[in-house]
Design a binder for these strands. Structure first.
Length: 481
RNA sequence: GCACCGUUCGUCUAGAGGUUAGGACACCGCUCUUUCACAGCGGUAACACGGGUUCGAGUCCCGUACGGUGUACCA
C-alpha cells in the first residue's frame, strides 16, 4: 500500500512550488490507489503564522488536491500536527542517546558561531566539531550528568559515524553516495525541547508508515542524515524521490520579485484551478505524448516518478496564460456565467439573465486570457453608459455624410427579426451600405465603433444581437443627433 | 570554500547508439476576416565544451566549464 505525505510548514501562504510537490504526491498516491496524507511541520515556533494551516489547506482544496488523512480530516496515524506530537520526539531522541547514536551538547550559539568563524578562517567546511566543543564526549559522563541535573540548556545531536559512506537510491536521481565525513552532527532536539525537521520528519514518516517521500530537491543534501537516522533506529527507510525546483527566469529558486508565487495570487488573478494544476504538473514532468492539456484524472492515470525531470524548470507565466485561455475556450459558457456575474455586478453592469452572460462569454472568450477580462472587454454589452469616443474619431465619423446616411438606413430597417437571422442581417447591412454608396468594409467597422464606442473586434452580428435592436437603434440615434 | 544535483531551440519538453533532432509557448510571416482574436499553413531557433568507448554518440564513460541547491537550535 502506497502511503505518501505532503508536509508543509505553516509559515505563510501556500507557495506554487509547494503546490506542485503536493500535486506530485497526490498524483502518485491516486495513481497507485494509495493514501495521501497531510502533515503540518510546525516545529519552529518562531516562524508560525496564524491561519496559515487553514489557508494552505484551502489553497490545496481549490486546486483539487485532497487528502485521505490529515489534521482536517483525521485518520488513524494522528495527530497530524507535529506540535501535538511533542512528547514523541523527545522519547525517540532519548532512545538514540541511550543506544549511542546521539549525544548531549551544551554549546551556546555564540560558541557555535565562533567555531564556524574559526573553521572558515582555516578554510575547512563548517561542521560541528565533536572533539573540541562542549558535549558529552569532551565533558565526560560525570560532568554531563551534573550539567543535566543542574538543568543546563542543551541539545541532542546525531552522532554521525565518521567512517562509512552513506548511500541511498533516489527514484528520480538514481544512486547518491555521500562520504560520512561530510555529514554534520545534526541537532535532533533543540534546547527548547522541540525536534528539528530531521528528527520529526523521520519519526513521523516511520510512524505514519510512509512508503514514498516525494519532496523538493532542496532536501537532497540532507537526505543522508535521514538515512543515518533510519539506520540508527533500525527502521526501513522509505523510497526517496526528489523533484526538481521551479525556477525564476534567472534560474534561481522561484520567488517573489519575479512574479506571483502564492497559489492564492494565481486564484486571485483569475486562473482556473484546473489550468494551474495542468501547467504546474507539466513543469518538470510529462507523459511523452503530443498534447499538453490534461484533466486531473488524466494526470493521475499517467503520472509516474520515472518521467519526472532532474533539472529545474523555469516557470513560464506566458505559457500559463496560454493554457488558461485554452481552458477558457474549452469550458461550457453556461458553466462559466455564474463565475462572471459577481464581477459584472460589482462593476454596476446590468444584464438580462445568465443565458445572456453565457452568450457574451461565448462571443468574447476567444479574445481574452481570463474569464474576468470579459467584464471590461465587453463592457459595451452591459449597462447603458458608453465610454466617450476619442474626439478625432468622433469628428471623422460625424463628418462622413455617406456613413450617416447608411447608418440611418440601417437603423430604420433594424428589427429583432433581422437580428435573429444572420443572413437577413447581412442582406440588410449590405443594402444600407449600398444605398449610401458605401462598400461593406467602409460601413461595418465605423458602425461597430458607433454602436460600441470602441473598435472591440467582436463579430458584428452576434454583438448587435446581444445588444438588441432597440438599444442598438438608440445608440445610432444618439450618434446621429 | 566544501558537498550534492543538474545541463536538447529564449522557455517547457520528446528523444533510452543509427532521427532531415519532433512538439508546445513566445516571436516573425502568410491565409481566412471589414478589423482584432480564433483557426490553418509556414519560418527563425537547441544537443555547454573537450576527450574517450563504438563502424556509428544528443543518447554510454571520464574530465572541464557553467548553473542550481545545501552547508542553522528554518523547514
Amino acid at each position: 500500500m502506497v502511503r505518501v505525505r505532503f508536509a508543509p510548514s505553516p509559515t505563510g501562504f501556500l507557495h506554487i512550488g509547494s503546490l506542485r510537490t503536493a500535486l506530485y504526491n497526490f498524483l502518485y498516491a491516486r495513481h497507485h490507489g494509495g493514501v495521501c496524507i497531510l502533515r503540518i511541520e510546525d516545529t519552529d515556533r518562531t516562524r508560525f503564522v496564524e491561519g496559515a494551516i487553514e489557508e494552505q489547506i484551502a489553497s490545496l482544496a481549490w486546486a483539487g488536491v485532497t487528502f485521505d488523512e490529515g489534521p482536517h480530516v483525521g485518520g488513524n496515524y494522528g495527530p497530524y500536527i507535529q506540535s501535538e506530537r511533542f512528547d514523541l520526539y523527545r522519547q525517540y531522541g532519548m532512545q538514540l542517546v541511550e543506544s549511542g547514536h546521539a549525544y548531549y551538547a551544551f554549546d551556546t550559539s555564540e560558541e557555535l558561531d565562533a567555531m564556524r568563524v574559526r573553521q572558515q578562517a582555516a578554510g575547512i567546511a563548517p561542521k560541528y566539531d565533536r572533539s573540541s566543543m562542549r558535549n558529552q564526549y569532551t565533558l565526560g559522563e560525570q560532568e554531563t550528568q551534573r550539567l543535566l541535573d543542574e538543568g543546563a540548556a542543551h541539545v541532542i545531536r546525531l552522532k554521525v559515524p565518521l567512517t562509512s559512506d552513506v548511500r541511498f537510491h533516489d527514484e528520480i536521481r538514481g544512486d547518491v553516495i555521500v562520504n560520512g565525513r561530510e555529514i554534520d552532527d545534526q541537532i535532533l532536539l533543540k534546547s527548547d525541547g522541540f525536534p528539528t525537521y530531521h528528527l520529526a520528519n523521520v519519526v513521523d514518516d516511520h510512524l505514519m508508515e510512509i512508503t514514498h517521500v516525494i519532496r523538493a530537491e532542496e532536501w537532497l543534501p540532507s537526505t543522508p542524515k535521514h538515512v543515518l537516522l533510519y539506520e540508527a533506529f533500525g527502521w526501513k527507510a522509505p523510497t526517496f524521490a526528489h523533484v526538481p525546483l521551479m525556477l525564476n527566469p534567472d534560474r534561481t529558486k522561484m520567488s517573489k520579485r519575479h512574479g506571483d508565487v502564492m497559489v492564492r495570487d494565481f486564484a486571485g488573478k483569475g486562473y482556473f484551478p484546473d489550468a494551474l494544476v495542468n501547467f504546474v504538473a507539466m513543469c518538470g514532468w510529462n507523459p511523452a505524448e503530443d498534447r499538453e492539456i490534461y484533466a486531473m484524472h488524466e494526470l493521475i492515470d499517467r503520472f509516474t516518478l520515472d518521467r519526472v525531470h532532474k533539472a529545474g524548470a523555469v516557470f513560464d507565466y506566458k505559457k500559463l496564460e496560454w493554457m488558461n485561455a485554452e481552458y477558457l475556450r474549452a469550458k461550457a459558457p453556461a458553466d462559466l456565467a455564474a463565475d462572471l456575474m459577481p464581477t459584472l455586478e460589482q462593476a454596476g453592469y446590468t444584464y438580462r439573465d445568465s443565458a445572456f452572460v453565457a452568450s457574451v462569454i461565448a462571443l468574447l472568450r476567444e479574445r481574452v486570457t481570463f474569464l474576468q477580462d470579459i467584464a471590461t472587454f465587453g463592457d459595451y454589452l452591459f449597462g447603458d453608459t458608453l465610454a466617450p469616443l476619442d474626439e478625432a474619431t468622433e469628428a471623422q465619423l460625424r463628418d462622413d455624410a455617406a456613413l450617416r446616411a447608411a447608418l440611418a438606413a440601417f437603423r430604420d430597417g433594424l428589427t429583432d427579426a433581422v437580428l435573429a437571422d444572420a443572413d437577413a442581417f447581412k442582406a440588410h447591412a449590405k443594402a444600407s451600405a449600398e444605398a449610401a454608396g458605401l462598400a461593406m468594409g467602409k460601413f461595418m467597422k465605423p458602425m461597430r465603433i458607433v454602436v460600441t464606442h470602441r473598435d472591440v473586434g467582436a463579430d458584428l452580428h452576434p454583438t448587435l444581437q446581444l445588444l438588441g435592436s432597440s438599444r442598438c437603434i438608440a445608440r445610432i440615434d444618439a450618434f446621429l443627433s
